[in-house]
Design a protein around this nucleic acid. Structure first.
Lengths: 222, 222
DNA sequence: CGAGTAAGTTACTCATGAGTCAGTAACGTT
DNA sequence: AACGTTACTGACTCATGAGTAACTTACTCG
């Protein structure tokens, strides 16, 4: 029964085109779980469905695999976040859109893992770090800063340093994303839905940079 | 010369009272540099001025040392942050005071290291994690929430969920602290002084929860 | 001053896991 | 179908570092 005639099942297959991706995905999982030092290459191999030796056909060593993973993963997602901002909307509306899009990105497990690894293994890979900073937070801050700048010009937002505002907006969004990813284990996030948190974020941010306390609020004097 | 008569210099000294603290400080340094898995007990020992065996006189193993360190360090600092808030000041002024005090704490190297380790080694020590969350961010959020609540009652702040506001305020402060600790390597922090960042934080936060856009008092010095 | 003991050291064992390499199996080619 | 090539395997080596324990040294107290 183990060797039936019709199933010419090979014990393994040659898939040189797909291996790198498979290995990188497995690496994200295992490095994410245990960190760079404690992760075992054999675990990555098993999770990728290959043997340890195969990893060395595609990556020179553990560190290189790690770096390649950090380099490769974010580029898959980011572009999509930026694309969908309506050119002709008001600055306030653009801000809402961008926060909503980023919120989706920033909550993905891979973002949380990547950020955690970057933060903790930082020291030893300065170039990698700079690249990540440039590619994720800086980019986000610049876009936010531009929206703020336009909002100031149009009178929607108060006179605030756009770069500083971009940094603030990014920071609050970003950290809430990290928290949301492990929401179940964080008391102050457990009872909130993703949308509730997003609403709170938008509300907070719009008030922080808004010209007036937002349309309705000028008469709240109980 | 090597064995002079009058210097009865012992090769090492018995200091059972001071060892734990010395070892914990060394542990912070080495774990902070390399992470839990990659840190070598011998490095910690050398940095503490003892031999490896001595560590095992005070801590059962590497993990226990790590946990004890995480548990012990924050308790040294935190209380001081909370003490100095004037009871009779306005909510806005209390908020300013608290942000300034926290800003000092959150920028210390040990905070940055601790937070980084907590974040990355988390998975494997759930109780430790919960304790930290409770002791640092939750505590901070609650205090901020209380100040906000008082400010709403007094009409200084707009009608906002105090817990949510506390979370927002904490998040933005917190992440800026982490960034400030490695400021030199972060492009968007390099050109700002600690006080400038603090001013930006205070400005942003007060506008976010303020009833009105704040009476032009944005540059209050030390 | 000289046991006795607490504190500390050093040399050791032993498990672990990165990296290697000789061999094996899939697959294209003719 | 036999051959050659290339993808892949898995058993090996070897360095490393946690944990241990037999030994040594500082200090105490009668």
């Amino acid at each position: 029964m183990s060797e039936s005639a019709e199933t010419n099942a090979p014990r393994w297959r040659r898939l040189p085109g797909e291996r790198p991706r498979q290995i990188l995905d497995a690496a994200l999982e295992v490095f994410g779980e245990r960190g760079l030092a404690a992760a075992r290459l054999e675990d990555i191999a098993r999770s990728a469905g290959v043997s340890k030796g195969t990893i060395y056909l595609y990556f020179p060593n553990k560190e290189a695999l790690f770096c390649e993973m950090i380099r490769e993963i974010p580029s898959r997602h980011i572009a999509s976040v930026e694309a969908m901002i309506s050119e002709d909307a008001s600055a306030r509306e653009q801000l809402r859109q961008y926060l909503r899009n980023s919120w989706d990105y920033v909550r993905t497990p891979s973002f949380e893992i990547l950020y955690r690894l970057i933060l903790s293994e930082l020291h030893h890979f300065p170039d990698l770090y700079e690249q990540f900073i440039e590619e994720v937070p800086m980019r986000s801050m610049r876009i936010l800063g531009d929206i703020v700048k336009r909002g100031i010009a149009s009178g929607e937002f108060r006179d605030i340093d756009p770069l500083a505002a971009g940094r603030m907006l990014h920071s609050v969004l970003f950290i809430h994303g990290v928290w949301a990813a492990k929401r179940a284990r964080i008391p102050f996030m457990r009872d909130l839905s993703d949308n509730q948190v997003l609403d709170q974020l938008v509300d907070f941010c719009l008030h922080a940079i808004g010209q007036v306390p937002v349309p309705t609020a000028s008469h709240v004097h109980t």
